[in-house]
């Protein structure tokens, strides 16, 4: 079974029960300390002290060892990081092409030194030794997106694009987005609605209920896009109930969202497989399970 997880970047408060779940799932799969820490960092954006203590307790390791590993790797952060990460390469190749000047420009525009977060918690700036793309230098990475041959005049645009995050993906041009054809798992009716396009594609129509109000929710059928439109305005962070518009069955999946703990909605994929999306407004967690087929 192949699994693709697009995790939310939003910072979440440390929740021991949730962390314990993460640790258990990782211990079952491979049991490596680094993969457990990676998973925790993916969820919280950093490694909370409580989580490290819990890891030590659950895996039977000494806290000293867990702490030693967590501080050894630059990848792990013990301090909360900004919502968006900007890494500026200062490897040899990038350095001679002006990487240091770029790093200075980022420091000036963001008003923070490398390793610090902006006061509003939006950005954290880092310098890295090498990203392995020396021919394209100087390299800047904004939330996992590589910008090549950067010069100082592009710094502002990079900060802006990184701030806008996943929304910057152009559904028409981005080939990493692909359309899904989804069905209700209860009545097997197709859910695509060509009359209300989202991302210029037929949308996935669901019935949404939130605090007594009801209306249609149209999701983008492009996996990874997060585009949607709705008739009911739901404040960010609220959990909603989603129903099939044909058979009115509640679409909740058996297991909750691994990122925020809210109920998830499970939809059938044409050709086999399950697509799951979190029912919390603003949570970007999506999972694609393609049974028995490599992805």
């Amino acid at each position: 079974m192949a699994k693709v997880v697009v995790a939310s970047k939003a910072l979440k408060p440390f929740d021991p029960a949730q962390a314990a779940k993460v640790i258990e799932s990782q211990t079952r799969d491979h049991g490596g300390l680094i993969s457990i820490l990676e998973e925790i960092q993916l969820h919280y954006g950093y490694l909370p002290e409580g989580a490290l203590r819990l890891v030590a307790e659950k895996t039977g390791r000494d806290l000293v060892d867990v702490y030693g590993v967590a501080t050894f790797y630059r990848f792990f952060s013990l301090k909360p990081r900004g919502e968006h990460q900007i890494s500026c390469c200062l490897g040899t190749a990038c350095h001679v092409r002006g990487g240091a000047l770029l790093a200075e420009e980022f420091q000036r525009q963001l008003g923070v030194k490398p390793g610090e977060n902006t006061p509003d918690g939006k950005f954290s700036l880092e310098t890295v030794a090498c990203l392995g793309a020396c021919a394209l230098g100087p390299i800047v990475v904004g939330d996992g997106h590589y910008y090549s041959n950067v010069n100082s005049s592009r710094v502002k645009a990079i900060i802006q694009e990184t701030l806008e995050g996943l929304k910057r993906k152009d559904p028409a041009a981005d080939e990493s987005l692909f359309p899904l054809t989804l069905h209700c798992p209860h009545c097997n009716h197709g859910l695509l609605d060509p009359d209300t396009p989202v991302d210029r594609q037929p949308s996935v129509r669901l019935l949404l209920a939130h605090q007594g109000r009801q209306g249609f929710l149209h999701l983008s059928r492009l996996y990874g896009s997060h585009g949607h439109s709705t008739q009911v305005e739901v404040p960010a962070g609220e959990v909603t109930d989603l129903y099939c518009p044909h058979c009115q069955a509640l679409l909740n999946a058996p297991d909750d969202c691994p990122a925020c703990g809210a109920a998830r909605v499970a939809l059938l994929l044409a050709g086999g497989g399950v697509f799951q999306v979190c029912s919390r407004r603003g949570c970007l967690e999506q999972t694609l399970d393609l049974d028995g087929r490599s992805f």
Binding site: D62, V64, D65, Y67, G68, T71, F72
Partner: peptide, 9 residues
């Protein structure tokens, strides 16, 4: 005891 150990690198 294992109270102290190496940190960072």
């Amino acid at each position: 005891a294992k109270a102290i150990g190496f940190r960072a690198r």
